[in-house]
Amino acid sequence: MASTVRVHGPCGQRALILTSLAVPLTGWAVHAVSLHRKLAAAHRKLADRRDPLTGLLGRNGYTAKARQITGRYGHHALVAMVDLDHFKQINDGQPGGHAAGDRVLAVTAQRLTAWAGSHGAVGRLGGDEFAVTVRIGAGRREPRLAQLAALLAQPVQLDDGVWVDVSASIGAACPDVIGTTDLSALQRAADAAMYAGKHTGRPVLADRSHATVPSINGRRAGRPGTDILGAAA
């Protein structure tokens, strides 16, 4: 026997209307949740994307991990900006050309990773520019930065057996000195400190004056890679 659905009176009609509306709304809700999950997964995949040459975290992945470190360790965190000195001469002046530069970048990445340890964040921001965020107590900052400078100044052996002299400029900033755990502010101060010690082989630990240097996107105004539109390399 065929079943029959009866609707009695206005109340029954309203219930039927609400039910008919709820079905597509439920479908859209499920679709929205699914879309949100897919977008979140895509975002995580983007954040985890690594630089193909060095294997280091890209800008997004580094930023996410660095913020976790500064948020968790506060005044015991240290943010460092690192530029290789005279890198263009290595790229242009060696027989291997860009292959020589690539080798130096890869070795630098290995050294930074070894120095930072498994709990640190190391990223390649672009070109020969790197950033590191680690947990280091106040009493160990200067000796650890000196250790990093010495490590990065060791010659690099190229694939053809030739040794290349390298060095790096290093600037660092700490929340207790700068007065904030904001990663952009710390990177801005570290970048200014790095520029203050450019080509000296001496790491510079930022003070409050470095935090006031004009910047674009957290980078010292006027350095390569910044422009009036606010883009940074």
Rank of each mutant, 00 (worst) to 15 (best):
residue 191 D to Y: 06
residue 72 R to P: 00
residue 38 K to Y: 00
residue 115 W to P: 08
residue 116 A to C: 06
residue 129 E to M: 03
residue 101 G to E: 05
residue 223 R to L: 05
residue 208 R to P: 01
residue 181 T to L: 03
residue 227 D to S: 11
residue 174 C to R: 15
residue 186 L to M: 11
residue 198 K to W: 03
residue 43 H to E: 15
residue 31 H to R: 15
residue 149 A to L: 07
residue 197 G to R: 08
residue 106 A to S: 15
residue 90 I to K: 01
residue 219 R to L: 06
residue 225 G to Y: 03
residue 60 N to E: 11
residue 20 S to Q: 15
residue 84 L to N: 02
residue 69 I to S: 04
residue 193 A to Y: 11
residue 188 R to F: 01
residue 8 H to A: 12
residue 232 A to I: 02
residue 45 K to S: 12
residue 105 L to H: 06
residue 126 G to Q: 05
residue 229 L to K: 00
residue 145 L to C: 09
residue 101 G to W: 07
residue 5 V to C: 07
residue 208 R to K: 13
residue 96 G to F: 00
residue 188 R to V: 00
residue 111 R to I: 03
residue 122 V to C: 10
residue 44 R to H: 12
residue 61 G to Q: 10
residue 17 I to H: 12
residue 28 W to D: 02
residue 53 L to H: 04
residue 159 D to I: 03
residue 225 G to V: 07
residue 211 A to D: 09
residue 184 S to R: 11
residue 150 A to L: 10
residue 77 A to I: 01
residue 76 H to N: 14
residue 206 A to T: 11
residue 40 A to V: 11
residue 99 A to M: 10
residue 84 L to H: 01
residue 113 T to G: 03
residue 220 R to V: 15
residue 71 G to N: 13
residue 96 G to R: 11
residue 136 I to G: 01
residue 61 G to H: 07
residue 100 A to E: 02
residue 163 W to I: 01
residue 112 L to V: 05
residue 42 A to T: 03
residue 90 I to Y: 01
residue 141 R to S: 04
residue 194 M to T: 05
residue 173 A to N: 10
residue 227 D to C: 11
residue 64 A to R: 15
residue 203 P to G: 05
residue 73 Y to Q: 02
residue 221 A to D: 07
residue 56 L to V: 02
residue 215 S to M: 01
residue 225 G to T: 08
residue 169 S to R: 08
residue 116 A to L: 10
residue 131 A to M: 03
residue 136 I to F: 03
residue 25 L to K: 04
residue 112 L to R: 04
